Structures are given as structure tokens and as C-alpha cells.
Computed example of a mutant assay.
Amino acid sequence: MLFCYYSPFFDAAFNGSFEEGVTQSMDIVDVDPKVFALFLNWLYTQNVAQDQDNAQTLGTFINLWLLDDRFLIPKLQNETLVALDWRRMETGKRVGVYHVVYNNTVRGSPLRRYLAQTTATGFPSNGAIAYEHDHYPPELVFDMFEFLRTQTGPAGARRRVNYSKDELRQFFVEEGETKPKEN
């Protein structure tokens, strides 16, 4: 089963002593069908759709990254981040689903770091950053401040970040051996 091959989450559920292993079924009711369709597409094609005919919203890519995190698939998280960044640059928009990210990730998450840096550098360099509590979680504002505080150069020299794929690697989830090693 492809699910089990790519995901230790599904492998443990279906090949372990959990109910899903006995019934060989699982209900996943809290996932947007569009996001799950992207996940299934990746399982079969190893490609995160990012062409013009199938353009996804930034929020859809965020939700796919969060699903990849839930299912423990770092390779897909990293490919999703590349697609997210590509779409962000193409549309010229900020990601904007800040509360979704901060409510579903932990401090230091690669997605939080990416969001803080791209948001902090996405404001006009000649303007102040207006804080809107309902729009920006306090943790995001702190993360943006920490990022901007560590940057060198003249004050107000923020620029919109256009990452190369190598530069995006700083936000990648470490890929590696995910299955338990046998003794």
C-alpha cells in the first residue's frame, strides 16, 4: 500500500495492532477534499501540482504541508514548501493563513520560520508594520521581530524575499530513515 510505504503514520496504523490494522480502514474526516486529492496525486505521481491549469491557493499548499506533517512525510512537506514558495512569488501575495499555521505547528517549526521571514520581508520598506491582533498571531509578530532583529544592513532595508531552491532548504524538514530499524 503506497500510504504505508511513504508514511510511518499509516504504516503503524495499518500494520500494527491498532483498530485500522484489524479493519484495514481509516476515517479521515477533517481534511479538505482538495488537499487530500493533492496528497493522493503526489502518492501516485511524486509531483505537487503547480502548473497554471491546476494552480492552487497559498492556503491549499499550507494545508497540504500541515497534512504532510500529520502523516509524517518530510519529502512531501519539502516539495509542498517549494510549490508554496513558487506560488507566493507568482501571485505576489503573502500567505495570510497565519492562525492556521500557528495553531497547528510548534515553536521552531520550519513552516513558522518560513512564514515569519516571508511575511516580515513582504511589507513595504518605507512603511511601518501595522499590528492587527486578529490577523497576526502574537507568536508570528515575535518571530518576525526576531528575524528582522538579526538582519544586517540599513534600517528599513526590507525586501521581498525570492528564495532559490537551495535557500529554501533552510526551511526543509529533515528527510531520512523514518521506519524503525530492526535489531
Rank of each mutant, 00 (worst) to 15 (best):
H135I: 07
P124C: 05
W42Q: 06
R113E: 03
F61C: 04
P124H: 07
A128Y: 11
K179I: 12
E139A: 06
S109N: 12
L84Y: 03
F14D: 08
L111Q: 01
L168G: 04
T118R: 00
G176S: 06
Q46A: 07
F18R: 00
A12T: 12
Q77H: 12
R149M: 09
A37G: 08
T152R: 05
A55Q: 09
R112N: 05
L111K: 01
R158V: 15
P33T: 00
T119L: 01
V22R: 04
F71Q: 08
M144K: 04
N183K: 14
L140G: 08
T45C: 06
P124F: 06
P110C: 08
R70A: 07
T60D: 04
F10R: 09
M144W: 00
T91D: 14
D53F: 11
D166T: 12
E182N: 15
N63C: 09
T23R: 00
K179F: 13
H133V: 11
K165F: 10
N47T: 06
E132I: 08
D51M: 06
M26R: 04
D68E: 15
T105D: 03
A120I: 12
N162P: 12
S164K: 08
L84G: 03
L2D: 10
P137R: 00
D27S: 14
P8T: 14
Y102S: 03
L40F: 07
L140R: 08
L58Q: 00
Q50H: 10
A120P: 14
G92S: 09
G176A: 04
T57K: 02
N126G: 15
V97C: 01
P180W: 10
Y136S: 09
L115C: 07
D143C: 02
V100M: 04
M26H: 02
F39P: 03
F142C: 07
Y5R: 09
Q52S: 10
S17T: 12
S25W: 01
A37D: 11
E79V: 02
T119R: 01
N183E: 14
D68W: 15
T118W: 00
A13G: 06
V22G: 00
Y131F: 04
